[in-house]
Design a protein around this nucleic acid. Structure first.
Lengths: 147, 147
DNA sequence: GTAACTGCAAACCCTTTGCAGCCCC
DNA sequence: GGGGCTGCAAAGGGTTTGCAGTTAC
């Protein structure tokens, strides 16, 4: 997808949720689209500053909270790191294998929890709305470094 | 287990890790033992105050950090809540079904991830050190309240 | 024009830390 | 007695908020 069509896509996403199209919101969506993986609020902010986008950190927070509320981005949090991370919401539900050394993230193809959730609903009558799953460890490169 | 034997047990846990036995540490262990589920630092602190135990919040933080370092308690963090929680370390590895309405936590018997972790290790050569899994939704009572 | 949005700075919550005094060993 | 532990208060990091000015519609 090129820059121009990306931009059209972002505008459609915002308009579809009755959100105003602002330079800042487009820029945040652009950074998340390029990243592909969940980013901390601070790194979104820093990437924007690198590309000379004038924006305030609290605005990044507000934009991400708004977009998360509309479901356009998804918030996640890592153990061993108290900062929130955000990524564009994808249709595909997916988890990550996270390296505790270098923060590299490898997507995991399947979600093994659908059956478990159905069983839990039957057993407990909870209305299950979601789950978090993250597997962490050290990638081959970081294992060598720390050895 | 009655109060006296609990107390003996706590002393053994502390001494076994070469930690000094203090009134505050015994009290923190007592609160966690009664709770059974992971507690926030603040709720540990409040429960101690309720029972007239003179203790400072930062001491609770320090005690829990120390005990977690020795493996006597286990730290966990919930999505949708940036606060850490602590529970007595149990032999049994276990996850929870959490109610987003009232914070009630129901333990889930099995961990469905052992096989997945082994497969991931084979495929990626990551040294896998752990995972987080939490399933959330609304318990029957909260479903009625919000209906 | 007007409501939504942004920038700025201050406030907020959770957590950590420096230091002086206390208490377990 | 001495070092580990605690209380207190202040600082730290991430996040939220009040308000005035700006901008999209």
């Amino acid at each position: 997808m090129n820059a121009a069509s990306n931009r059209q896509h972002f505008r459609g996403m915002l308009a579809g949720q009755r959100l105003r199209i602002t330079r800042q919101r487009e820029a945040v969506l652009g950074v998340l689209a390029e990243a592909g993986a969940p980013l901390t609020v601070e790194s979104v902010y820093l990437k924007l500053r690198e590309r000379d986008a004038a924006i305030c950190l609290s605005t990044v927070y507000r934009i991400l909270a708004t977009l998360a509320g509309k479901g356009l981005v998804t918030k996640s949090s890592t153990p061993a790191d108290h900062r929130s991370r955000f990524a564009l919401t994808t249709d595909r539900h997916c988890h990550h294998l996270v390296c505790l050394g270098c923060d590299r993230r490898v997507p995991i193809a399947d979600c093994p929890l659908k059956e478990l959730e159905q069983a839990l609903h039957r057993n407990t009558n909870f209305a299950i709305s979601g789950h978090t799953l993250e597997i962490y460890g050290y990638c081959p490169a970081c294992q060598e470094t720390n050895a």
